[in-house]
Design a protein around this nucleic acid. Sequence first.
DNA 1: AGGAAAACCTGCGTGC
DNA 2: TGCACGCAGGTTTTCC
Length: 271
Amino acid sequence: MPELPEVETTRRGISPHLTGLRVTDVVVREHRLRWPVPDELAQKLIGAELLAVRRRGKYLLFDFPHGSMLVHLGMSGTLRVLRQAPAAERHEHVDWLFSDGTVLRYRDPRRFGCVLWQDAGAGEHPLLAHLGPEPLSDLFHTDYLANALAHRQSVIKLAIMDHHIVVGVGNIYASEALFRAGVHPERRASALTREDVVRLVDAIKATLNDAITQGGSTLRDFVDSDGKSGYFLMTSFVYGRNDAPCRVCGAPIRQIRQGQRSTFFCAHCQH
DNA sequence: AGGAAAACCTGCGTGC
DNA sequence: TGCACGCAGGTTTTCC
């Protein structure tokens, strides 16, 4: 479910309520996630102070003095902060209890997410080691992307979703960013002109920034919410709008399949 | 070695 | 109402 803006919004929603607290207990009701929740997680965390909550791509990193807990939300994961924790419902797989009584609760019906532990000093976690640059950082610029795409044979939609090239661009925002850049999703990546790449870099940054800004209005949903809120979908130009009129030119939005995923685009606005 | 497909899961909407 | 089917915002692993 979550793409980078949703993960970043989650981070901003939960971090102020948890940072500086100590973990008093960890309850794992279901350890069968993308990978098993490590048996030693509770032992690692209990008594430790949470120093910060960071994000790398779509991973959330909970920093403790002796290591970091990695959390990925997969397709359907959510994290919520509870002041008064009701009994856990179906799919609410993990609780972290903190020193002031606050509970952080992880829910993930499809169990594509993960909760892992990495000791400090053990180097970068293998899942993070080969990730490309953050799209909103200065490392993601025209020269970088032009070089990364130069020899890619795949279509541009799949290239910008490849986290070796850039992290955090998921299926929704890939379609949205290509629309904003005026680039057809079936163009071969290596065939983009420099001007295409300039517009695409700008479009990716703008699309993600806009979504994060809109997510800011939902921050309160991460505390004591019913679990259904906490996510948002910005008004899209193309995603999910098959056969609907393009918001710019009125031509019908088209839906195709690329790499087993749906892509939406306007054949009139994107070339 | 790069690219395509399969795999991991549950839930929901649709059509018969 | 029930059931089969296809689809869903991710990513790793496997197979050519």
